[in-house]
Structure formats: C-alpha cells, structure tokens
C-alpha cells in the first residue's frame, strides 16, 4: 500500500468509523476470510506507536508517530531532568553516540528521550537539561500529559512486570530501544554499553546500503 493510500485509510478510520465494514470487505483475504490484509508496518504502528501529542524541550508540539517516528531511524530512552544516579551516565553515553552518528543525526536518525516525570519536566526544565548536556539538533526531550507518557512508556516496553520494581523509575532508564521504522527492524540494548557498541547495535538496523558506514570499526560482518 502506498503512503498516500495508507494515510487515506487512517483518515477514513479516524473520521468515519462506519466506513470500516466496507474497507474490511475490500481488504479481506480471499472469499469469506475473516482476516484483513494490513501491512505489518501499520500493525506495528497501531500496536506500539500511539500518535500522542507531545511537547519538545524547544516548546514545539509534535505527534509521536507522524512527526517523530514515521520514515525514520529512531533511538528511544527514558529520563527525568532531576534524575541522578544512572541518568547521567546514560545521557553522557548518548551524547557520545550523538557525536559518533555525526551528520546522520537530525537527518535520518533521531534520539528521543521521554519524560518519566512529566509534571516536573516542563519545557524550561527540559531545555536546561538539554543545554547542560550540549544536546545537538536531532535529539529531543519530550513531555506530555502524564497519562499519555505512562501509556507510551508501557507501549515501548520500558516496564517491569513486578509493580513494585516498576515503581522505581531508575529501572526504566538503563535501557535504550531503537529501530528503523520503514524497514520494521527494532532492537534494544543497555544504555550503559559503550557508545561504540550502541552505535554498532544501531548499525544493524540501518539501511542496507549503510550497513558498514556507521560502524566505528571495520569488518564485513
């Protein structure tokens, strides 16, 4: 399905639910099948990337899927501005990852840090945090409605199944996730890994033509 067709479908679904049965019939697999043909990329979007309204550290309002994820290589992590302990080393690591990614940052690769304390992480607080870490374009700190941020955290798997452990926010900061949205390649790794190895892990989900160019070290693997 082309992008424009998909957009039309999304628009139709959003605006007029009664259109759905017709579309379903048109999309069904063969005669009488109960299944719809939906591109896996759309199913991933529907499953994991709610198109929430978020606010950046620069004060812009953005949509999570449409503006931040679609057509991009993305790196996700969680933060809160007043966090000590594990936050600082992970953020410092990502600053070095940002440097290693060079001019790809902000072009086709983006880093998004989502607030775990959206009430505290106001635009000025996030902006201060970003400036303190000398964050460059292509890396956004993001906040939003507390319920939305909680949903996002769960959708992206920054959770622990034990509710008590889950309450300890530091448990959600040691992990980063990344993916290539159009290629449907997703992965994750510890945020405390070396910047080199984080970049290598990201290189594995990079565009095929770039499979080697991201790596700090050579080799054909």
């Amino acid at each position: 399905m082309t992008d424009s067709k998909r957009r039309n479908l999304v628009a139709a679904l959003g605006a007029a639910p009664f259109v759905l049965p017709m579309l379903t019939a048109a999309q069904s697999v063969g005669t009488g099948s109960k299944f719809k043909v939906i591109p896996s990329r759309e199913r991933i979007r529907d499953r994991y990337f709610p198109n929430l309204s978020l606010t950046t550290h620069e004060g812009r309002t953005v949509r999570f899927y449409d503006d931040l994820v679609k057509d991009k290589i993305v790196v996700f992590n969680m933060f809160y501005a007043k966090c000590e302990g594990i936050c600082s080393p992970v953020t410092r690591n990502l600053v070095r990852v940002q440097k290693l990614l060079g001019d790809r940052m902000g072009k086709d690769i983006f880093i998004y840090s989502f607030s775990l304390k959206p009430k505290d992480d106001t635009v000025p607080a996030m902006k201060h945090y970003a400036q303190m870490h000398k964050v460059k374009p292509g890396w956004l700190f993001l906040t939003g409605e507390p319920d939305d941020m909680e949903l996002l955290r769960r959708k992206l798997g920054f959770v622990d199944p034990d509710p008590e452990v889950d309450k300890d926010l530091s448990n959600h900061i040691g992990v980063i996730k990344f993916g290539n949205e159009p290629l449907e390649r997703w992965g994750g790794c510890p945020g405390m890994k070396s910047p080199d190895s984080i970049v290598e892990a990201i290189s594995w989900i990079d565009w095929p033509k770039n499979q080697t160019s991201l790596k700090a070290k050579g080799g054909t693997r």
Partner: peptide, 13 residues
C-alpha cells in the same frame, strides 16, 4: 486482525 504471526517487539521479559 490479520491472522499473521506476531512478535512482541519491545518485550524484554
């Protein structure tokens, strides 16, 4: 919905 094999991409447990 699609009847196709599904993998939980962000599950770590």
């Amino acid at each position: 919905q699609t009847g196709l094999l599904k993998f939980d991409l962000f599950n770590t447990d």
